[in-house]
């Protein structure tokens, strides 16, 4: 106990950079039983979701380190969108910086509350496999089905149901008024 350092939130992100811990080390030694068919499953998985989710959960990328950083970033960002509501148990906010000439995302930051519903996961899919700079507004962000109406509907509402903004520069995303 004495060796337990007091944790600070700032180094929590770095703290999870160690690879997923080996399960053997945290489970008790197997209980000896007479027959292997009925051996207790002491080595069952300790994580409910997939390993990809685990990696992103403990080592999230493109996040803000402080609240002040988020406020400052919002002034510079080309686009901001929020989906979901705390009433339903999930909400996500995304900030984008866009290179308009090449029509690609220069930088992306996000914040989340809870998990996103399966319908909204079209946005998550590509973040996990592609570097942010390579994301192209036209096709990548919205995923394969390209359901524009759906994307508009969920992207522009804030959590109280209020419309955040209506103007659209690009074909798919909705932007701030400047």
């Amino acid at each position: 106990m004495a060796a337990l350092k007091s944790l600070k939130s700032a180094d929590l992100a770095g703290h999870f950079t160690h690879k997923v811990r080996k399960m053997e080390s945290i489970n008790p030694a197997p209980v000896p039983v007479s027959h292997q068919d009925v051996q207790a499953k002491v080595e069952a998985r300790k994580w409910f979701y997939t390993d990809v989710v685990k990696e992103h959960f403990f080592n999230p990328k493109n996040i803000f380190k402080t609240d002040e950083e988020a406020i400052a970033y919002e002034k510079e960002a080309n686009g901001v969108g929020q989906v979901g509501s705390p009433a339903c148990g999930d909400a996500m906010k995304i900030w984008l910086k866009i290179d308009e000439k090449s029509d690609t995302v220069k930088e992306l930051k996000w914040q989340t509350f809870g998990s996103l519903l399966p319908g909204a996961s079209i946005m998550m899919k590509d973040f996990s496999t592609k570097p942010v700079e390579k994301i192209n507004i036209g096709d990548e962000l919205m995923g394969g089905d390209g359901n524009i109406n759906y994307a508009e509907e969920v992207l522009v509402r804030d959590y109280s149901g209020k419309i955040l903004c209506r103007r659209s520069i690009s074909t798919r995303l909705l932007w701030k008024n400047n």
Binding site: A13, M92, Q111
Partner: peptide, 18 residues
């Protein structure tokens, strides 16, 4: 010891600032 930094960390990650 473990809970407070976890809460601070998740609050920085959360878009809900009420």
């Amino acid at each position: 010891k473990t809970l407070p930094p976890i809460i601070t960390w998740l609050r920085t990650l959360s878009p809900i600032k009420v």
